[in-house]
Design a protein around this nucleic acid. Structure first.
Length: 468
RNA sequence: GGCGCCGUAGCCAAGUGGUAAGGCAGGAGACUGCAAAUCUCUCACCGUCGGUUCGAUUCCGACCGGCGCCUCCA
């Protein structure tokens, strides 16, 4: 096995990675804020994290992944207030939708999906520790802030020390009172709106609610320990979210928070960042409605490296659909084959090596995909020769299983019994027509099938069909 | 203004100091009653201009173009 390497945002370099204890990778991934459907950009990040966990397992490690669900924040409260309801009424359906969408995209279950609102005591305790260490202070309104100038390492992750902060409109307009404009809220004093929507809890500083960054520190440390292996998220979270997580966690414990930080680049739509406020979001429900399978989107995402921006253009998904179709056809062929050749074994080994080499080199999925397609070409050529070596075929199947166990790109063969019976009957009729060389009738049947979205293939073993 | 990323074929996209993976689309051929699938072959002046080097798409600089972050956005 080659060495597993990852790009670490802390050092801005690709470096060897292994879990601290040698067998379990403790990984924290920032999850969605559940106040609307997560869009395809969000899912690009979650897909990158799915690739990460599957690759880590391929490397022989166990994975303990925690993904938080942010179920209390400004936007949720605003929405609940507008609807005259509580935040949980807003977040519950979207939490359910998130998991549905996630499954549609075949994103593996994390080991835990803790909610912020279920960890208020842990967060309060963390704030108390920070106050005790004198790095947090209470403002006049009862909110608690983290004083960034009392944490010398502040800005390391985002290289803030090297940049000039623009003291512009956004900072000046902050709604809360604080000592330094750049200090961030750990705990926000409750406002009427918070109380009305069920977004306020008791604390030593009165009623209030947690700041956004606090939940991740509290939950990560609760489930993964004060120091853990890997923290991942979208690139936009580097600053301020992850910077603040580091500050509050390390200030409290005096220990390294996450050993390695990984960030996925953005998904763009027609050249612009996919975001609600840009108005160019697309989500998984729309994918489903357009009949675009989860595997197609997986292919589209994995076809580019996770640290490069990826544009969702006109026919991106069409191209991926064709690529995935090819993989599906091959999977079926491999399953139905009866034997292989020596060269097939060689192709399988070559593919496995190339695949692992690519993924272990900072999750180079495009190159891993290339290894898969090269294997498909090589294996098809061998299968064409009609080899009879059963062990060789098993070897090829094992290689394909290993590869697809990570990429998970074989489209589902949905079994619709009624359709299948009808199709079988039509195919028989067509073959009868072909027997008597009545090709006009045969083509008419094929047209009938195509009209119902079924394509057929004649082969030496008979006629096969599939849904388009 | 500060920080960072990117510019490779019609499209998507890897990669390397010694003349460039893979996918989609296209072209030619094999197979087929015709198709489809599959197989074979084919398809690149690596943004521009300088510099370093025996040699650069790959390193350095400038420029042009695109994108992102700079307090709550994956």
């Amino acid at each position: 096995m080659p060495e597993f390497r990852l790009y670490n945002t802390l050092t801005r370099r690709v470096e060897p990675f292994a879990p601290a204890d040698g067998h379990t990778v403790r990984m924290y991934t920032c999850g969605p804020t559940v106040y609307n459907p997560a869009h395809l950009g969000n899912f690009r990040t979650f897909l990158f994290e799915d690739l990460m966990r599957r690759t880590l397992k391929l490397a022989g490690w166990r994975v303990e992944q925690i993904m938080n669900l942010t179920d209390v924040d400004d936007k949720i409260i605003r929405k609940a207030a507008a609807l005259g309801t509580t935040i949980s009424h807003v977040t519950e359906p979207f939490t359910e939708l998130f998991h549905q969408d996630r499954r549609y995209l075949r994103i593996e279950d994390a080991e835990g999906y803790p909610k912020a609102t279920a960890h208020i005591p842990e967060m309060v305790a963390l704030v108390e520790r920070l106050i005790a260490k004198n790095v947090a202070y209470e403002a006049e309104d009862g909110s608690i802030y983290f004083a960034i100038d009392r944490f010398p390492n502040y800005g390391h992750l985002s290289q803030l020390d090297k940049r000039e902060l623009r003291t512009g409109a956004r900072v000046a307009q902050d709604e809360y009172a604080k000592e330094n404009a750049q200090d961030f809220a750990l705990w926000k004093a409750a406002k009427d709106e918070d109380e009305a929507t069920g977004a306020a809890w008791d604390s030593p500083w009165g009623r209030g609610r947690p700041g956004w960054h606090l939940e991740c520190s509290a939950m990560a440390m609760k489930y993964l320990g004060e120091t853990f292996d890997l923290h991942a998220g979208g690139i936009d979270l580097i600053f301020p979210h992850h910077e603040d997580e580091i500050a509050q966690s390390e200030a409290a414990t005096g220990k390294t928070f996450a050993r390695c930080w990984c960030h996925g680049e953005f998904l763009l739509t027609d050249g612009a960042k996919m975001a609600k406020r840009v108005g160019n979001v697309a989500n998984v429900v729309e994918l489903r409605e357009q009949g675009i399978s989860g595997t197609v989107y997986r292919h589209f995402v994995f076809n580019a490296h996770y640290r490069k921006q990826l544009n969702l253009g006109e026919d991106s998904l069409e191209q991926s659909r064709a690529a995935v179709r090819r993989i599906g056809t091959f999977a079926k062929r491999l399953a139905e084959a009866s034997g292989g050749t020596e060269a097939l074994v060689a192709a399988a080994s070559k593919a496995e090596h190339a695949f692992i080499e690519a993924l272990f080199d900072d999750l180079n999925a495009p190159e891993a995909l290339a290894a898969l397609f090269t294997f498909i070409t090589d294996a098809n050529r061998e299968l064409d020769t009609g080899g009879t070596d059963v062990a060789a075929l098993d070897r090829a199947r094992a290689a394909f299983r290993m590869i697809d166990g990570v990429l998970d790109l074989v489209p589902e063969q949905e079994a619709d019994a009624e359709l299948a019976a009808w199709v079988e009957e039509r195919i028989e009729a067509r073959n009868a027509a072909r027997e008597r060389r009545d090709f006009g009738a045969a083509d008419a049947v094929r047209a009938e099938l195509v009209a119902r979205g079924v394509s057929i293939e004649d082969s030496a073993q008979g006629t096969r069909w599939k849904r388009l």
